[in-house]
Amino acid sequence: MIYNIPFFTVVALIAIGMYAMLFKRNLIKMAIGLTIVESGVNLFLITLGYRKGGFAPIFTDLPPDVSPADIPGKMVLPVPQALTLTSIVIGVAVLALILSLAINIYRHYGTLESEKVRRLRE
């Protein structure tokens, strides 16, 4: 049960983020919502790689009390961590782009309300 708590957190984070994106009318708040969804997904990926009492997958830097026989069961898989890192980097790039676009929108429209930022419609 206790190991499921991260998954509930994932669901909660994604739900909060989606709520912000669906119902908040400010573009900056929507960007924050996007970041929250992204944190949820990142948490999900990192939780997949969790092992109780595991250690980092670096063969040259093993903890002192580890015997080679422990390695298959205890060493965590590096793939989910690599995925999470990549996803965080991409997230930063996306967020930077969104915020710079928001600045330009504010310059031209004088507002960041999504009800007013809609010259493109119909």
């Binding site: 994106m21 996007l34 995925l83 996803s87 997230g91 996306v94 493109l120």
Partner: peptide, 30 residues
């Protein structure tokens, strides 16, 4: 032209939401 920024913002937010869904399902399959 301000409307280009508006279109780009809509595009990038929609795209990254879609991409996050893709990433989540990659996590499920993984």
């Amino acid at each position: 032209r301000g409307s280009t920024s508006e279109a780009a913002l809509k595009y990038i937010i929609i795209s990254s939401i879609g991409a996050l869904f893709v990433l989540f399902s990659i996590g499920l399959l993984y």
